[in-house]
């Protein structure tokens, strides 16, 4: 458990966040080790999504800090955080609905290459062969290559999530945050997504995953933190968490009914 501190990619340190009178996060501490899949579980309203929002700069913590490879994230703008190497899959897919799948995946690739702003108005998109090849490769990876010329808005919910995952993967992020990547998916789609996430597990990318589906959590996670009412109540290897009576009471019990 006591791994060297330098292997910590994401360090959430004493983060507090309230919305009006509601304490969403209370003294949250979280250390995510490099290359690991770290799952955060907890009942609805436990503050899981708020925690991810703090990490990507969507909301600022009241106090405490989020450190990414030693850099303080909560002072940066969302686009800067992404440029540092943090990508996120949202709970409701955030995609470019009226563009094609190929364009959807190419846009993040341009962002990675060109930084926050580059005036790229002379060359045609069609001439950006290497970016296009990369995008097609990623679309094959997420199983959407055949539909690359379709509009993203026409995809099913499960496919939208996989597209969004592809949009994150093409950026080769150091840290990938996944907010319920299989919510609302049929069993078949869920298994496909698990397979996909397992495949990219070997690529040395660190992942933080929020998930309701225990089947997904226990097939992927290296480490699990349990969040309830804005507090981390348990943390450890999957088997340890599964056995913890505290966790059963707070969360697993209701999920296993």
């Amino acid at each position: 458990m006591t791994t060297a501190e330098k292997n910590i990619v994401l360090h959430v340190a004493d983060v507090n966040k309230s919305f009006g009178g509601l304490r969403a996060l209370t003294e949250v501490n979280l250390k995510v080790e490099e290359g690991k899949v770290h799952a955060i579980i907890g009942p609805n309203g436990a503050g899981k999504s708020t925690l991810l929002n703090v990490c990507i700069g969507r909301i600022r913590p009241d106090n405490g800090h989020v450190l990414f490879n030693g850099q303080v994230l909560d002072e940066h703008e969302p686009h800067e955080i992404n440029q540092l190497g943090v990508s996120r899959v949202f709970q409701t897919p955030e995609i470019f609905a009226d563009l094609t799948l190929l364009d959807n995946v190419m846009i993040p690739a341009f962002a990675k290459r060109d930084g926050a702003f580059k005036f790229n108005a002379v060359r045609a998109v069609a001439a950006e062969k290497s970016v296009r090849d990369e995008a097609e490769y990623v679309l094959q990876d997420v199983g959407l290559y055949e539909r690359r010329f379709d509009l993203a808005g026409a995809l099913s919910r499960g496919d939208k999530r996989r597209l969004e995952l592809g949009m994150c993967l093409i950026q080769k992020p150091k840290l990938l945050l996944l907010d319920e990547p299989t919510a609302g998916m049929a069993r078949h789609d869920t298994n496909m997504t698990i397979d996909l996430l397992k495949r990219i597990k070997s690529r040395g990318m660190t992942k933080v995953i929020i998930e309701h589906d225990m089947h997904v959590v226990f097939s992927l996670a290296d480490k699990i933190s349990v969040l309830a009412q804005g507090k981390i109540i348990a943390e450890g290897l999957p088997d340890e968490v599964r056995g913890s009576p505290k966790v059963k009471e707070a969360y697993l019990g209701e999920a296993h009914q």
């Binding site: 686009h79 955030e94 990675k112």
Partner: peptide, 15 residues
């Protein structure tokens, strides 16, 4: 066009 489609996603994509 992507800004028109989803400006939020653009921001979280590094733009």
């Amino acid at each position: 066009k992507a800004i028109k489609s989803n400006q939020n996603r653009m921001r979280y994509t590094g733009y």
